[in-house]
Amino acid sequence: MGAQPRSGVSPQGPSAGIHFRREPPEDPPVGALDITLYRDDLTTIAAQPVIQGTDIPCSIDGRRVLLVDDVLFTGRTVRAALDELVDFGRPARIELAVLVDRGHRELPIRADYVGQEVATTRPQIVQVQLREEDGRDRVLLVDREPPAVPLPPLPGGAARQRTKRALARKKPSTRKAGRRR
């Protein structure tokens, strides 16, 4: 359990998430939110997104919940995740950790823990690749047309240590991973 890096999303989910270490004696339960049913653009997008289902393994009442996503962009995903989360209970507090903050917020939302801030233009795509799925950890900034430009290496330390500290701060907590966008 100790040194094993874990992905923050359910295994079948899209490749979003931050690597965590579960540090004994803490071993907070991990769940995954599928925010599709809470999207604010469902009736305007062309094809309906695939529903993967939400999995929250324990009660979140009175607990500290860490919401995790790979990329923070408009903030609409986080808004949907917050709405969904409160339908499951009343956490003592909810915090947000993201691997990349790319700006362009459309809602008054900010992350408590940020791995890296990346300046982007709106049409660009930020692609997060994870060791488990893509062979290596890196963040790509993709223009609408390829080729992709690799960013400087992930501050493997930064994101991980900061999140680790966050997790270690208080006792039992639940971590949530929001699917991106």
Partner: peptide, 10 residues
């Protein structure tokens, strides 16, 4: 969900 979730155009 599949019939009402998408846009009118789709």
């Amino acid at each position: 969900y599949l019939l009402l979730g998408g846009s009118e155009a789709a």
